[in-house]
């Protein structure tokens, strides 16, 4: 198992390399001058030239690229053009917020989506099932930033139940601040997961071993949660992985709407200001996150399915 994971980690190296290269090229192709963006349009041309020289922007592209790769290998992302702070400390400050948001929304999303899906599967074509269908449809249709804005307006602005902006300080205040952003992502996630759970459970409920479980004298609850759901989790875990990754793109919009610190927000600000070092580091963080989630899902497969365990 450990060896297997090590191989998968080595497999990820080319991916990271491609992501880095793509970001480098993309940022150089996009119009806009980082020096101008960092210092402002009123800046003296001599100062602009000095800035470019100091940040290595005058080097030939291939040299910039090699330097960039070399720095990335050492996890040295340089200094933000904009704030002049080391990129690593910007990441260190913002990353925990994004992780917290992701974890909270995944937990809420699973806690809502899976029971709803199971319930609908056992009441096929009855009102609960139709309700889930409608709920999923809405979940697919509503964009995250829109739902975030609605929740913000209704529960924070009008009802005043939750704070409007920021991440809060301390555990309880932080929890209070994260509920609406996490709920935004969790509701969308549960719509997707609910639908997926329903399909997987329905498929498994038709299997022979479910009939065997009933023939043994197992009651429906046991049949569903012990025999059906565990098998349904196999196809479902792929969906859970996908939905965790979708949280990333979702977190960009949600962090923006709720004005929360986080990698998504950091990245958006950096892109609009052509802050190359921050963009490169931020995208790399996302790439690491995707690789990590994929690896974690592989571990989950192995834990759920003894057949995979035996094969590996």
């Amino acid at each position: 198992m450990a060896r297997y994971l090590l191989y998968r980690l080595l497999d990820a190296i080319p991916t990271v390399f491609l992501v880095l290269s793509f970001v480098f090229v993309a940022m150089r192709i996009l119009p806009g001058d980082p020096a101008l963006a960092a210092l402002g349009p009123q800046t003296d041309p001599a100062q602009l030239a000095l800035f470019r020289e100091r940040m290595g922007l005058n080097d030939p592209l291939w040299l910039q690229y090699l330097k960039f790769l070399w720095d990335a290998v050492r996890f040295d992302f340089g200094v933000s053009f904009l704030s002049n702070q080391p990129v690593s400390s910007l990441i260190a400050r913002n990353l925990p917020h994004t992780i917290y948001l992701t974890l909270t929304s995944v937990v809420i999303g699973l806690a809502l989506g899976i029971p709803f899906g199971v319930y609908a599967a056992t009441r096929r074509n009855r009102p609960a099932d139709s309700a889930l269908r409608l709920y999923s449809l809405l979940g697919y249709a509503i964009p995250d930033f829109y739902l975030a804005a609605i929740l913000l307006i209704v529960f924070a602005l009008n009802l005043g139940w939750f704070p409007i902006l920021g991440a809060g300080t301390g555990f309880w205040d932080g929890l209070h601040h994260i509920i609406l952003p996490a709920l935004t992502l969790a509701l969308l996630k549960s719509a997707f997961l609910g639908r997926l759970t329903r399909t997987s459970v329905l498929e498994v409920l038709g299997r022979d071993y479910v009939r065997t479980a009933r023939a043994k004298g197992a009651r429906e609850g046991r049949v569903i949660y012990r025999h059906a759901l565990r098998n349904a989790l196999l196809p479902l875990s792929t969906g859970i992985g996908i939905s965790i990754l979708a949280t990333l793109s979702g977190s960009v919009a949600v962090e923006l709407v709720f004005n929360r610190p986080g990698i998504g927000r950091l990245l958006i600000d950096a892109i609009s200001e052509r802050d190359y070092p921050v963009i490169q580091a931020g995208v790399l963080m996302f790439a690491f996150f995707v690789i990590f989630v994929n690896l974690a899902m592989e571990v989950v497969y192995v834990l759920i399915d003894p057949r995979i365990r035996m094969a590996s």
Partner: peptide
């Protein structure tokens, strides 16, 4: 009653057992 008074063996031994237990 199922399992206690009446036991049942099914046709497909390949699919009648739960693969993850």
């Amino acid at each position: 009653i199922r399992g206690r008074d009446v036991g049942m063996i099914f046709q497909e031994p390949m699919s009648s057992l739960n693969p993850v237990m």
